[in-house]
C-alpha cells in the first residue's frame, strides 16, 4: 500500500493526533516521575486498573464504560502508592510493586469469584492506537490541555519538589498537594493511554522520552521541552514506520522511542567528551 495513500484513512489520522497528544502527556508527566524515582508507576497503575476493571465489571457496568468507571478506583490506587511511600520505610518502587501486585491479585480473584463475564475482560483492557474513536481523541485532548496548563503554572514547584522535598517545603510549596496532583494526573493518563495504546506502551512512554531528554538537557526547562519533543517524535515516527514497514504499531512506537534514547545517549556521551 502506498505510504501517502494510507494517510488518507480516518483511523490513521486519529492515531496520529491521539498519538501526538499521548506522547506529549506521558513525556511531561514522565520527566517528574523519573526524577522522583516513580518511573514504574505507569506499570503499577496499569496493573491496578486491571483489578479495578474486574471489580467494576462485577458491579454490572456495561463493557463500553468499564475503563472509565474504573477511574475513581485507580485514583485511589495512585494515592495508595503515594501514601505508602510517604509513610513507613517504603521506597517508591516498592510501593508501586505492592499496589501493582495487589491490583493483579484482586483482578484474578474477582474474575474467578464472579463465575465469568459477558465479555472478554482482556480485550477491553488492552488497546490499540489504530482503533481509537473520536470521543477517545477528544478526551485525550482535554486531558492534554489540563496537563499542559498544570505544568505551565506549577512546573517550577514540581521541579523544586523533584530536586529536594525539604527545600521545596521551606520554599512555601505544599509538597503533599503537588505530589497528589502529579500522581492523580498520571493515573488519569495511564487509564486513558492504556485503553488507547496498551499496557506496555504507557509505561515505556512515561520512561523512555524523559530519559532520552535527560541525556541531553542542559537545564530544567530545555529538558522538559526536549522530553515533550522526544515523546511526540517517538510516537509519530513509530506510527509512520509501522505503516511503511507493515509492523504492529504499538511495538514499533516503543522501538522508535528506544532508538531515540540510544541516539540521545550517544550524543550526550560525545558532547561530554
Amino acid at each position: 500500500m502506498p505510504f501517502f495513500e494510507i494517510l488518507g484513512y480516518g483511523f490513521i489520522q486519529r492515531a496520529l493526533i491521539a498519538g501526538t497528544l499521548i506522547g506529549l502527556l506521558c513525556a511531561l508527566l514522565g520527566i517528574f516521575l523519573v526524577l522522583r524515582r516513580f518511573s514504574l508507576i505507569g506499570d503499577g497503575l496499569a496493573h491496578f486498573t486491571f483489578g479495578s476493571v474486574a471489580l467494576v465489571l462485577l458491579c454490572g457496568v456495561s463493557a463500553t464504560w468499564v475503563t472509565y468507571a474504573a477511574i475513581p478506583l485507580v485514583l485511589i490506587g495512585a494515592l495508595g502508592i503515594l501514601k505508602l511511600t510517604s509513610s513507613a520505610r517504603i521506597h517508591g518502587d516498592t510501593a508501586i510493586g505492592i499496589v501493582s501486585a495487589l491490583g493483579i491479585a484482586l483482578g484474578v480473584i474477582l474474575a474467578s469469584l464472579s463465575g465469568g463475564y459477558n465479555v472478554d475482560l482482556f480485550s477491553y483492557l488492552f488497546g490499540n492506537i489504530l482503533i481509537i474513536s473520536r470521543n477517545d481523541v477528544l478526551l485525550t485532548a482535554a486531558l492534554a490541555i489540563v496537563v499542559v496548563a498544570v505544568v505551565a503554572l506549577r512546573g517550577r514547584a514540581f521541579f523544586a519538589v523533584a530536586f529536594d522535598e525539604d527545600l521545596a517545603r521551606t520554599s512555601g510549596i505544599n509538597t503533599g498537594r503537588a505530589n497528589i496532583i502529579l500522581v492523580l494526573l498520571t493515573a488519569l493518563t495511564v487509564v486513558l493511554a492504556m485503553k488507547l495504546v496498551g499496557i506496555m506502551l504507557v509505561s515505556a512512554l512515561l520512561i523512555l522520552p524523559p530519559v532520552a531528554a535527560l541525556q541531553l538537557g542542559r537545564g530544567f526547562l530545555p529538558t522538559l521541552l526536549l522530553a515533550a519533543a522526544c515523546g511526540i517524535l517517538s510516537v509519530l515516527s513509530g506510527i509512520l514506520a509501522s505503516f511503511a514497514l507493515n509492523l504492529p504499531t504499538g511495538g514499533t512506537i516503543i522501538v522508535a522511542s528506544f532508538l531515540l534514547f540510544v541516539v540521545a545517549a550517544l550524543v550526550g556521551r560525545w558532547r561530554r567528551g
Partner: peptide
C-alpha cells in the same frame, strides 16, 4: 496486533 496496512 493488526497492522495499519491490514486494516487499510
Amino acid at each position: 496486533e493488526p497492522t495499519a496496512a491490514t486494516m487499510a
